[in-house]
């Protein structure tokens, strides 16, 4: 699956320009199943990018893990989902030195969440490389109950925590790594527009 092209939006909505090798430098790479292909493509442009790379694969996919191992990173770590990966990524970031390159690939949820972790540890946003691959599902935060609903593909959608029907905004918080969702029928309870699949 190729890199996703999103339609232009507001200033707070992140963009994902794609991965470019920074050469044989210390690196942290985090990818989900779809994002793993972006890492494969990255290595095809410059094999040395893996010399000092910790790769975290967020997927239950042994064949993908084998494919990434074949690229000979310094280490490959596997985690079944984002929650399980978080303490691992946090630990790697906490002990990283200046000059460590961060490569993120996959869904907006993975990119947003790991960016937020890195940002909180002092890595500026402009130093984080990202490439969107796979599902355009969004990680949405309900502005009312603050609960986060993962993998949202429709607008409006129902909050997994407080059951309000929410509409998606493009307003994005890098600190939290989430898009904002707001009650769609706040002024006219019960009057909800038709549900649509989201587009890039």
């Amino acid at each position: 699956m190729p890199k996703t092209e999103f339609s232009p939006s507001i200033e707070s909505r992140p963009t994902y320009p794609g991965l470019t090798s920074q050469g044989s430098a210390p690196a942290i790479m985090v990818a989900d199943a779809a994002g793993a292909e972006a890492l494969v493509d990255l290595v095809a442009t410059d094999a040395s990018v893996m010399d000092h790379a910790h790769v975290v694969l967020i997927a239950k996919a042994p064949e993908l893990a084998a494919k990434l191992t074949a690229l000979t990173p310094k280490a490959l770590h596997e985690a079944p989902d984002l929650d399980a990966a978080t303490p691992l990524v946090t630990q790697i970031l906490d002990t990283a030195k200046m000059g460590t390159q961060l490569y993120l690939a996959g869904s907006e949820g993975v990119i947003g969440h790991v960016s937020a972790l890195a940002f909180a540890r002092g890595l500026p946003m402009e130093a984080i490389q990202s490439e969107h691959r796979g599902s355009i599902a969004r990680r949405m935060q309900c502005v009312h109950c603050k609960g986060i609903t993962e993998d949202v593909t429709t607008d409006p959608f129902v909050c997994a925590h407080c059951d309000l029907t929410l509409f998606m905004r493009d307003h994005f918080s890098r600190r939290l790594g989430v898009f904002q969702a707001v009650c769609v029928d706040a002024e006219t309870p019960g009057v909800v527009p038709a549900t649509e699949e989201i587009r890039p």
Binding site: D170, H171, R174
Partner: peptide
Amino acid sequence: WSLDFDVGMNFFEWHAPVPKAR
């Protein structure tokens, strides 16, 4: 507008939802 959501944003990010002005 939500401080909890916007805290940490830069000037252009927190004004992003304002139409036309940019």
